[in-house]
Simulated assay, not measured.
Amino acid sequence: MAVMLTTLLSDIFFLPEWGKAYATQDLGESKVFEFATGYGHIYYQFVVRPIPIALGDVNYYDTITPFGQSGPVIISCAAGRRKELAAAFDAEFQKYCIANNIVSEYVRFNSCVKNAEDFKEIYSIDNRGITMYIDLSVGDYFLEEFKSSTRQQVRRALKNNVEIEYDYTGATIDEFHRLYEIMAKRNNIPNHYRFSKELLAESFSLLEGKQFIIYAKYEGQYISAAMYLHHGDFLHYHLSANDPEFFNVAGNSLVLNEGCRWGVENGKKQLHLGGATSDVLYRFKRGFTKTEPLDILTGKKVRNETIYNLLVDYNLSRGIIENPEHFPLYRG
């Protein structure tokens, strides 16, 4: 059944092993809720987090989908019954939440498979920006997707004799994390948003055969790297790591070009680059694709309004809610 389920789930972020690998990043426990009827099947992976507020003797929780993009996804459905199936799923998951003291739910939907469309009447949907991807199904991604300035960067790296190295097992995770920390500190990424070396090392065991690192090396030294994920038609530029002292030799551009080459050779249709937190990063990623970006959509839902309001009121009375736009508000 597990093997069959893996083949039915279209992107790596839906896989059970993904939830197990990254649940700790969201400080919770990975769970799966499956809903099946005679006319359809929905699979939903999420992380259950304890709410650090005491209300009597009961412990309350909320949920968030694991880092990445997933959410509930319809695996199968009879023609014309998707809306009915989503509503039935929602009713059953509501019962599950009440039985398990789950107060609220936050979903990061998958831009690749666009599963938010099936659940837009269930959740309050927000647009959180855009995510970019390279269309690997074109005749020649280098000419048809890359901008001329990006092609020049790739050629510069080759002219500088930058070399490519692969790691499929995580044996070089120390080196990757060294480069990752250089980048994280340079971009002032808070500690709680960074990935630990231990988590990344363990992910290679849990995601065996679905994750690898591509390095750029210059004069024998690792200067740039990207961790790639893959499943089905999709390849993901998951994490990047660069030493800015070597930006002039364009190793990061060569690493992305190599990722595209690997994707084409292994039958992938899209290489997802993710979003951008700065204008510089946006321009860099946009240089690799002429394809229109996809929307990043999230969903939110209060599953127990009474308890939700009590939690919000409690933290408001303590004056510790800093962001009134955050969901759930008691964590703001």
Rank of each mutant, 00 (worst) to 15 (best):
C97D: 04
T131R: 00
I321A: 10
Y282P: 11
F327A: 05
N110C: 13
L239I: 04
A157M: 06
G263C: 10
Y60K: 02
E292S: 15
E92S: 11
Y106W: 07
D174I: 11
S253W: 01
N257L: 09
K20C: 10
V58Q: 02
Y141Q: 05
R194C: 04
N323A: 05
M1Y: 13
K159F: 08
N110I: 01
E175V: 08
A201T: 13
E325S: 09
V154K: 02
Y308M: 14
N101D: 06
A79F: 15
I182L: 15
N309P: 08
F212K: 08
A201N: 15
V280R: 03
H177D: 03
I214T: 02
P50Y: 03
P50H: 10
Q153P: 04
H192I: 06
E144D: 15
A87M: 06
F35N: 09
G332P: 06
D243S: 08
G56M: 04
I164K: 04
N266R: 13
D26V: 04
N188P: 07
E84M: 15
I134F: 05
R128I: 00
G28T: 11
T291M: 06
M1S: 11
L254Y: 02
G80T: 14
E84I: 07
G319P: 12
S205D: 14
G56A: 00
M132T: 04
T298S: 12
A79W: 13
P293E: 11
I164T: 08
I321D: 12
G299Y: 07
T277P: 05
K147S: 15
I74N: 02
I12D: 13
Y308R: 07
E305H: 12
L15K: 10
S111H: 02
K268C: 10
A79M: 10
E165L: 12
E325I: 01
E219R: 09
T63C: 13
E105G: 06
A184Y: 09
V58W: 00
K147V: 11
G287F: 11
Y61Q: 03
E121Y: 14
N110D: 10
Q153R: 14
G259P: 06
P16T: 05
R283D: 10
D62Y: 06
I321Q: 12
T277F: 13
H192R: 10
Y96L: 03
N187L: 09
E322F: 07
S10P: 14
S224D: 00
N127E: 13
S196E: 07
G287D: 09
G251M: 00
R186S: 15
G38H: 11
T291V: 12
A2P: 00
F35Q: 07
D279M: 07
F246Y: 08
N59Q: 11
D135M: 02
G40W: 07
L5I: 09
D90Q: 01
Y44P: 01
M1I: 14
D26S: 13
V312Q: 12
K159N: 15
H177E: 10
S124T: 15
L235I: 07
P66H: 11
E219Y: 08
L8P: 03
L239R: 01
E175W: 03
Y43N: 07
F93L: 03
N110T: 02
I296H: 00
A21E: 14
S240T: 00
K95L: 06
F176I: 06
